[in-house]
Design a protein around this nucleic acid. Structure first.
Length: 419
RNA sequence: GGAGAGGUGGCCGAGUGGCUUAAGGCGGCAGAUUGCUAAUCUGCUAUGGUUGGUCAACAAUCAUCACGGGUUCGAAUCCCGUCCUCUCCUCCA
C-alpha cells in the first residue's frame, strides 16, 4: 500500500499519478477520513492522559489511606468516553486501510502511459529460427513423441492440467535444475518454501482480496495454494527488521504455481500455453530504498541469462501503466519466440514494487544506529517452465519430428542429445 | 487428534490488580580513568501513532508484555477465544 503521509501531503500529485493507471480513486474521501481520525486521536489522547493522572492520584490516596471514591466515580464516565472513541477510531482505521488497499502503486516517470497497446518493445534478441519444413506446435510434438499427455491430464484433473511422461518429465526437471544453477551462480540463495500458505500471508503480498477467486483455497483449514512462489518468498521476512548490512537479499525458488484462471477458458489455452498448475523459478530481491532501480536492471539480466544460454529468440517489453500489476512501479516482460505456434510467449515479468509490498507486510531494514525504513521489493520469473518448454521444443524440433536437446541442457540430461 | 507446560524489550529473566513511566543481568553505544587487545566507573539503549517544531535534530503525549475480546475507576497480572512453542502419547511420508 501507499504511504498515507505521501497522499496527505501531495493529494493532487497522487491523483494525477494514479490517473496514469486509469485509477480514479476518491483521494479526497480518504483524506477526510484521515482528518477525522486525527481529530479523534487528539481527543482520546487527552482523555487517556487524564485517566493516567487520576490513576496516579488514586494510587497515592490509597497509600495514604485517604478516600478516593469521588475520583473513581468521575473516572467511570471518562473511561466510557475513551472506549467510545477507541471504537470509532478503529472503525475509521479499517475504512482507511480498505481504501489504501485499493490504491495501486504509482508508475515511474519513464513508464509509458496507457493500456497494453502502449507497451514498448525495448529490444529483440536472437535470430528467428529457420525451418525447411512447417514447424509443429508443441502439443503435436509432445503427443507424437509421447511426452505430453493433455487428454489424460484432463481426465484426472480437468482441463488445464497435463501430464509429462518420460523424456518430457525429464526435460522439465532438467530445465528447473539448469535455471536454479544459473540463478544461484548469479548470487541467489535457493529456497524451498511451502506451497500452502495462510490467508494472512496472501494478504501480506497484496493478492487478497482482489485475487481471491483466482486462487485455490483449501478447506477446512482455509489455506491457499500459492499462485507464485513470490507469495511465499515476499513473506519470508514479514514483520522483521533486517540489518542493512544483510542487504541485498536475493532469493530464488522453484515451486509449483496454482492458478484458477477463472474466465480465461478457451483463450490461448492449448497445450502448455495457459495451465492451472505449473512450475516456475522465481526471483525475489530485498534491497535498500536507493538501490531498487539498479536492482531491476540486474534482475532483468538474470532472467535474460536463461534465454541467452538456451539460444532462444526473445524480446523485452516495458509495460505500459495500465498493464502493470497492482504493486509495481515499473515492469519488464520477457517474451520468447515460439515458432510452432508462431507467437511471442510471456515467460517472465520483472517488477520493481518499491516499498508497496514491504509496507503492507511490514518488512524493514535498519542501518546501525539508524531508523528502520521499508525495504524495496522486486520480483521476477527466472523463468516460467511450461511456455519456456513449449518454445524450446518448437525451436529445437527436427525435420523427422524429434527434439534436439539444447547444448546448455545436455549436462542435465545425462548427455543425451535428442528426444 | 489426546494430556500437560509455556509465550514479558536485541537476548536472558523478575513480576499474582494501583509503588512497573517493566526490576536485575547480558549484549550494544558513548564517555571517564588506567603505562599497553584487559579491568573499573558513569550515562544511554525499542517500535508505532498524534501534536508542536525551519517537519530535520528534538520535545510533549498516547499505545504496545503473542494476538483478539471481556471484567474493572484501574490489567503484563483476572476471565474467554485464537495462534504459536516445548514435553509426553497417538498417527505418519
Amino acid at each position: 500500500m501507499l504511504d498515507i503521509k505521501f497522499i496527505r501531503k501531495n493529494p493532487d500529485k497522487a491523483t494525477e499519478l494514479l490517473k496514469k493507471r486509469k485509477h480514479d480513486h476518491k483521494v479526497n474521501d480518504l483524506l477526510q477520513l484521515d482528518e477525522l481520525r486525527r481529530e479523534k486521536i487528539v481527543a482520546v489522547q487527552n482523555l487517556k492522559e487524564v485517566k493516567n493522572q487520576k490513576n496516579q492520584e488514586i494510587t497515592a490516596a490509597k497509600k495514604e489511606g485517604k478516600d478516593f471514591s469521588q475520583i473513581i466515580s468521575q473516572m467511570k464516565d471518562v473511561s466510557k468516553d475513551i472506549k467510545t472513541h477507541d471504537n470509532e477510531i478503529s472503525e475509521i482505521d479499517d475504512k482507511i486501510k480498505t481504501s489504501l488497499l485499493q490504491i495501486p502503486n504509482i508508475p515511474q516517470d519513464d513508464v509509458p502511459v496507457g493500456d497494453e497497446s502502449q507497451n514498448e518493445i525495448v529490444s529483440v534478441h536472437g535470430e528467428e529460427p529457420q525451418f525447411s519444413f512447417t514447424p509443429k506446435p508443441h502439443w503435436d510434438l509432445g503427443k507424437d513423441l509421447g511426452i505430453l499427455e493433455t487428454e489424460r491430464g484432463a481426465r484426472m484433473s480437468g482441463s488445464g492440467f497435463n501430464v509429462l511422461v518420460g523424456a518430457g518429465a525429464k526435460f522439465e526437471r532438467a530445465l528447473i535444475n539448469f535455471m536454479l544453477d544459473v540463478q544461484t551462480s548469479a548470487g541467489y540463495t535457493e529456497v524451498s518454501p511451502p506451497h500452502l500458505v495462510l490467508r494472512s500471508t496472501v494478504e501480506g503480498s497484496a493478492q487478497l482480496p482482489k485475487m481471491e477467486h483466482d486462487m485455490y483455497n483449501t478447506q477446512p483449514d482455509d489455506l491457499f495454494l500459492i499462485p507464485t512462489s513470490e507469495t511465499a518468498l515476499v513473506n519470508l521476512y514479514r514483520e522483521e527488521v533486517l540489518p542493512a548490512k544483510n542487504l541485498p537479499i536475493r532469493v530464488t525458488a522453484a515451486t509449483s504455481c496454482f492458478r484458477r484462471e477463472a474466465g480465461a477458458a478457451g483463450k490461448d489455452t492449448r497445450g502448455l500455453l495457459r495451465v492451472h498448475e505449473f512450475k516456475k523459478v522465481e526471483l525475489v530481491n530485498f534491497v535498500a530504498a536507493d538501490k531498487s532501480d539498479e536492482a531491476l536492471q540486474t534482475m532483468l539480466k538474470n532472467a535474460e541469462a536463461v534465454l541467452q544460454k538456451l539460444n532462444l529468440r526473445y524480446r523485452i517489453l516495458l509495460l505500459a501503466s495500465e498493464d502493470m500489476s497492482f504493486a509495481s512501479t515499473k515492469t519488464y516482460d520477457l517474451e520468447v519466440w515460439s515458432p510452432g505456434v508462431d507467437r511471442w510467449l510471456e515467460v517472465s515479468s520483472c517488477s520493481n514494487c518499491t516499498d508497496y509490498q514491504a509496507r503492507r507486510a511490514n518488512i524493514r531494514y535498519k542501518e546501525q544506529g539508524g531508523k528502520p525504513q521499508f525495504v524495496h521489493l522486486l520480483n521476477g520469473s527466472g523463468l516460467a517452465v511450461p511456455r519456456l518448454m513449449a518454445a524450446l521444443w518448437e525451436t529445437y524440433q527436427t525435420a523427422d519430428g524429434h527434439i534436439s536437446i539444447p547444448e546448455a541442457l545436455q549436462p542435465y540430461f545425462g548427455g543425451e542429445k535428442e528426444i
